[in-house]
Design a protein around this nucleic acid. Structure first.
Lengths: 191, 191
DNA sequence: CTCTTTATATGATCATGATCATGTAAATTC
DNA sequence: GAATTTACATGATCATGATCATATAAAGAG
């Protein structure tokens, strides 16, 4: 049965948001088109009216995840204007972020998979990473713009790597230790 | 047709090594049992004489990848005893490592996927990470063992994150920049 | 050298999942 | 309000891939 134009637009948004979360939780290959549609409350048949393929969905959902992620960083930043970097670091390396990949950083959740995805997804990810680096560079201490950019990239890498390691490991104590160690190193680097 | 006991043992080794490489290159879901067997020069039928399931293979292949990876680090270390950490960092962040995931660090190649794998793979990865941290701690400067362990973990995270980001991004210049920035940050931290 | 065992090959099976075909009812259009 | 679209549902299709069943020839036991 047909639905109104705005209902359709809303459905499309829901599909994107849902897919964005599900992909981060289960990986691109762990989620089927039908799974996403079902989670949205629709059936698989209507999918190709919204997207041309699963890859198309993946790329757009990934783009959305990056937008949310970078918005999240901006919010952390403005919530504590005196220590924006500390705010981002401590939220990024929090157990709640580790335990909720579906709402978290797409790089930590899907980074290795993205490297093997099609061009559209790679491009969306590239833009997302560029934006993240720019956002971090803006709040990084350092004399020159180059210095700030270099440490922004290095800190970004540390955040991503620590989150990946902490999620990978099957030992809660080690996982917590990894988050704490990366956090400590990033704090002390702000000398 | 039957083969000798040693031939069989060698086949098993080849399956493990091949799978270890292929999984790192294409991800767990990107490689089928039949693909691995074919790459070894066998057919899919014999697979279950060697392993109880694909998951079983994945866990064992992952364990093997970690062993090789940690051995690789030890070699880099002993190749340049005056600056072991620098040796590891520069090899880890080299373009050749980035461009050859099949022979490289399993965390960077499969980290996000491992977090969603079964218990056996998670355990193998946990042991591998523990060993890597221990290895890095041993060459990390720092007054106390705690300090050395903390910076080992943070540096490990930086290496992993930088490699993941550099592989993800669809822009050669940005990819190189990420490797270089992480390398620079890790060098200057050795003050 | 014969008998038994077994590592692999060949060929199912069975489930999952992407994509397409068709129908229908509700929204738009006129 | 009738005619026309069209978003979605239902139900194929078709390929892929894990796993199992059976056959066979070569290895190892006696």
């Amino acid at each position: 049965m047909r639905v109104s134009r705005e209902q359709m637009a809303e459905n499309r948004e829901r599909i994107l948001d849902t897919a964005s979360t599900m992909f981060r939780e289960r990986g691109f290959d762990g989620v089927g088109v039908a799974d996403v549609m079902k989670a949205v409350g629709l059936t698989h048949g209507g999918f190709y009216g919204h997207f041309s393929s699963k890859d198309d969905l993946a790329a757009q959902a990934l783009g959305r995840a990056f937008v949310h992620s970078n918005r999240w960083a901006a919010e952390a930043k403005s919530a504590e204007p005196e220590a924006p970097l500390q705010a981002i670091v401590s939220r990024y390396l929090s157990p709640s972020h580790r335990d909720d990949p579906g709402q978290g950083c797409p790089v930590a959740a899907l980074g290795c998979d993205i490297a093997r995805q099609g061009e559209a997804s790679r491009l969306a990810a590239t833009e997302g990473v560029r934006a993240a680096i720019a956002g971090l560079s803006a709040i990084e201490p350092g004399a020159t713009a180059d210095e700030r950019r270099t440490s922004a990239i290095a800190n970004y890498a540390t955040l991503v790597g620590a989150l990946v390691l902490s999620r990978m490991v099957d030992d809660a104590a080690l996982s917590d230790e990894i988050l704490a160690a990366a956090g400590a190193a990033l704090q002390s680097a702000e000398a």
